[in-house]
Amino acid sequence: MIDWTHFTPWTSLAGGVLIGAAAALFLLLNGRIAGISGILGGLMRPVRGDVAWRAAFLAGLLFAPALYALVTRIPAPTIEAGYPLLLLAGTLVGIGTRYGSGCTSGHGVCGLSRFSPRSLAATLAFMAAGFATVFALRHVFA
């Protein structure tokens, strides 16, 4: 059953186009993959000359809400997870993205954009786990 009340095909498509454009721009300008977990995780073993661009990309992400707020009001998100669940989820995301060498951006957007079978395998794995987890939370244990 489709949730038509929350379905936002056009803004989601437009947001996706911006995400893809940012990934393409970053590749062309800097020769880098726009993978957020990799950019962040790479700061944990700093190499000379490799820190500034990572920090600058993250600063761009952090500054995005301020720029967005200049144009229109930031929609309030709904976060159902409580603090203990957020701690568990964050830890799993941190460990998992480093062992799996990427997340939704690095594998899902950049990897699939260059038709990488490795990224397709990773994307299928994390999507499957995401579907299974939400199924368990919403329909088994709820």
């Binding site: 957020i36 977990s37 962040l40 993250l58 992400l61 952090l62 976060i79 159902e80 997870a81 669940l85 957020l86 568990l88 989820a89 964050g90 830890t91 799993l92 995301v93 941190g94 460990i95 998992g96 993205t97 480093r98 062992y99 799996g100 060498s101 997340c103 939704t104 951006s105 594998h107 490795r118 395998a121 990773a122 994307t123 794995a125 994390f126 999507m127 499957a128 786990a129 995401g130 579907f131 299974a132 987890t133 939400v134 939370l137």
Partner: peptide, 23 residues
């Protein structure tokens, strides 16, 4: 790759956050 991605997807499903949107 596979086990790491499965762990990531589990965390993603638990909270609804992946790294980019969280930052």
């Amino acid at each position: 790759l596979v086990l790491g991605s499965l762990a990531f997807g589990t965390g993603w499903g638990l909270a609804g956050f992946c790294p980019g949107p969280a930052v």
